[in-house]
C-alpha cells in the first residue's frame, strides 16, 4: 500500500519543489504554513494577498519565493500618485523607428510583489486586478501577454487605513488566497534579534526551479487525484457557507472550483499524490475568509465564519 506522503511520477520535479520549499523555509523560519499556502497559490495558478503589518517579512517572503522559483521578480510600491501606466507600462513614440514602442511596466515579471496595494487609487488598483485576472495587458489597443507563470503577491496594511483605498469586497476574490503572516514566535524573534540577518541568505540563493518547471508543476497539480469523499467534503463546506446565518452570500461555484484546485496544489506542495481532507482544511480559511461577507450585525468576520464552518462540518 502506498503511503500518502510518497510521490508518484515526476519524482525529480517533486524533488525540485521540495527543495524550493526547503530553501524558502530556511530564510523565513517558523512560517511553514504561510509558505505552503504561498506555494499552493502559485501552483493553483492564483494570486496571494497578505494582510499584515509592515515589518513581519512580507517582502522577504515574496523575494525568497521568486528566487526559489527562479523567475524574475518585481516589486511595486503602491502610492497614491500612481497611475495604471506606472504598473502596466506605456507606449512611447520612438523617433528612430517612427512608431510607437511598448515599454513594459514592472508587472511584466514572474513574481510581482504589490506592496501596500491599498495606497493606490481604485483606478490603479483595478488595472492591476484586471491584468491579474486576464494574464495580459492591453495598452493603446494592443495586447501584451504577461510572462508565465505569473504570480502576484499583494500586501495590504489592515491598520493604518486613513487616506487609503482598501480593496473593495467585490474585488477581493481576484486573489485566490488571503492570509496573514503574523508575528514570529518568541524563540524565533530572539534568533532574529541575535543572529545575522537571514535576508543576506537571499543573495546566495540558488533557484531550485525555473518558470518552465513551475508551469509543469501547475499542470501536475491540475491532474492530482481527488477522491469522492474529498469532493463530498468540499461540497459540504461550500453548502455550509451558503446556509450560515452570518453570511450574506455563500461561496460561488467558481470559488468551489478554486477550492478543489488549491487543495490539489497544496497536496502537491505537501508531496502527496492524492488530495486529503487535511489539504482542504488547511487552504479553506485562506480561500473563503475574504470571499465571505458577513452581515454587519453578526459581529463576525469572514475568517471567523470559515473557522466555525470547519469546526462543525464532519469529514466524510
Amino acid at each position: 500500500m502506498n503511503k500518502p506522503s510518497t510521490a508518484r511520477s515526476g519524482a525529480p520535479l517533486a524533488e525540485d519543489l521540495a527543495r524550493a520549499r526547503a530553501t524558502v523555509n530556511e530564510i523565513i523560519v517558523d512560517k511553514g504554513e504561510v509558505i505552503d499556502l504561498a506555494f499552493s497559490a502559485l501552483l493553483a495558478g492564483g494570486h496571494l494577498l497578505i494582510e499584515d503589518l509592515p515589518g513581519v517579512g512580507k517582502t522577504t517572503l515574496a523575494q525568497a519565493l521568486s528566487l526559489a522559483v527562479g523567475g524574475d521578480w518585481q516589486r511595486i510600491q503602491f502610492t497614491s500618485d500612481m497611475l495604471p501606466a506606472d504598473i502596466l507600462g506605456v507606449s512611447m513614440f520612438r523617433r528612430e523607428g517612427e512608431q510607437f514602442e511598448f515599454r513594459p511596466g514592472p508587472i511584466f515579471a514572474n513574481v510581482v510583489l504589490a506592496d501596500e496595494i491599498n495606497r493606490a487609487t481604485p483606478r490603479t488598483q483595478s488595472a492591476l486586478l484586471e491584468a491579474m485576472a486576464e494574464g495580459q495587458v492591453t495598452v493603446d489597443g494592443r495586447t501584451h501577454e504577461l510572462p508565465r507563470p505569473f504570480f502576484v503577491i499583494a500586501t495590504q496594511n489592515p491598520l493604518d487605513l486613513t487616506g487609503t483605498y482598501p480593496l473593495p469586497d467585490s474585488q477581493l476574490d481576484r486573489f485566490l488566497l488571503r492570509t496573514r503572516i503574523g508575528y514570529p514566535s518568541a524563540a524565533e524573534e530572539r534568533r532574529l534579534l541575535t543572529e545575522p540577518d537571514r535576508r543576506n541568505l537571499l543573495k546566495d540563493m540558488e533557484p531550485s526551479l525555473d518558470p518552465n518547471r513551475v508551469m509543469e508543476l501547475i499542470g501536475l497539480a491540475g491532474e492530482l487525484h481527488v477522491s469522492e469523499p474529498v469532493l463530498d467534503y468540499i461540497q459540504a463546506l461550500v453548502a455550509a457557507t451558503r446556509s450560515h446565518p452570518a453570511v450574506k452570500a455563500g461561496l460561488s461555484p467558481r470559488a468551489a472550483l478554486a477550492l478543489i484546485q488549491t487543495a490539489r496544489a497544496h497536496a502537491l506542495v505537501m508531496q502527496q499524490d492524492f488530495c486529503l481532507p487535511d489539504n482542504v482544511r488547511t487552504v479553506f480559511p485562506a480561500l473563503a475568509g475574504h470571499r465571505l461577507q458577513p452581515v454587519a450585525e453578526s459581529g463576525m468576520d469572514g475568517d471567523a465564519v470559515a473557522a466555525e464552518i470547519l469546526e462543525s462540518t464532519p469529514v466524510p
Partner: peptide
C-alpha cells in the same frame, strides 16, 4: 490512520488491502 487515508481518499489498495 495513514492506511485509512490511502484507501479512502487515495483510492489505493485492492480488496485484500
Amino acid at each position: 490512520a495513514r492506511d485509512y487515508c490511502a484507501i479512502r481518499y487515495g483510492d489505493r489498495g485492492n480488496e485484500a488491502d
